[in-house]
């Protein structure tokens, strides 16, 4: 019998509560988490794979997995929102590369520690403004390399080949860009 518990499954409940309710089979908790994050997951997948149909498949798969494995999600050791975003990116890149006939060598989603909660629109906007500030300040070559790696899943060598730049230059650009991102989150 499907359980529903109104109080703990309200849209305002924290992720950790909703996940616990989901593990108990509470469909409303799944719906609340979906409403909170589906737009983000879908948008990331769509940005990478380029079409809405595949992006929706990825969205369905990720939330279905969350539903099935809620009982094993250890919220004390990772952020659910972070897990969703990493899962969306990884799966979208896997689809993209499989479509290109490339072999996949991507780890399954692992624990993710977000610097701040993304549970509300306000929290998401705060994080977004921080990320935007970093990206705006990055030299365009660093930003381009970072976006190729992040949204296309390209390796150092592939970026070097795409841009025609030496491999060492690409590695330096990425290390510098990631260093800047790290400093921004530490400040």
């Amino acid at each position: 019998m499907l359980q529903t518990t109104a109080i703990d499954s309200t849209p305002e409940a924290p992720d950790v509560v909703l996940i616990r309710r989901m593990a108990d089979g509470d469909e409303a908790a799944l719906a609340a988490l979906y409403d909170r994050y589906a737009g983000l997951v879908f948008s990331v997948a769509k940005r990478i794979v380029g079409d809405r149909s595949t992006a929706e498949e990825i969205l369905q798969d990720i939330f279905h997995q969350a539903w099935r494995t809620a009982s094993s999600f250890d919220s004390s050791r990772g952020s659910f929102a972070g897990w969703l975003l990493v899962a969306a990116r990884n799966r979208a890149i896997d689809r993209l590369r499989r479509r290109q006939g490339e072999a996949l060598d991507r780890a399954v989603e692992e624990k993710v520690a977000l610097a701040a909660s993304l549970e509300t629109a306000a929290a998401q906007n705060l994080m977004l403004s921080k990320v935007r500030k970093v990206l705006v300040e990055l030299p365009s070559a660093q930003r381009a390399a970072l976006e190729m790696a992040y949204f296309e899943g390209m390796t150092h060598s592939e970026i070097a080949e795409r841009t025609g730049e030496p491999l060492g230059t690409i590695k330096t650009r990425l290390r510098t860009a990631l260093g800047t991102l790290k400093k921004a989150f530490q400040s």
């Binding site: 589906a38 948008s43 929706e56 975003l85 977004l128």
Partner: peptide
């Protein structure tokens, strides 16, 4: 490494938001 994943996960926020069907 988990923190690094978290910083990169935040990069995803820059994509234009679209509503799923």
């Amino acid at each position: 490494l988990e923190e690094a994943r978290g910083r990169l996960a935040a990069l995803a926020l820059i994509v234009p938001l679209e509503s799923p069907p």
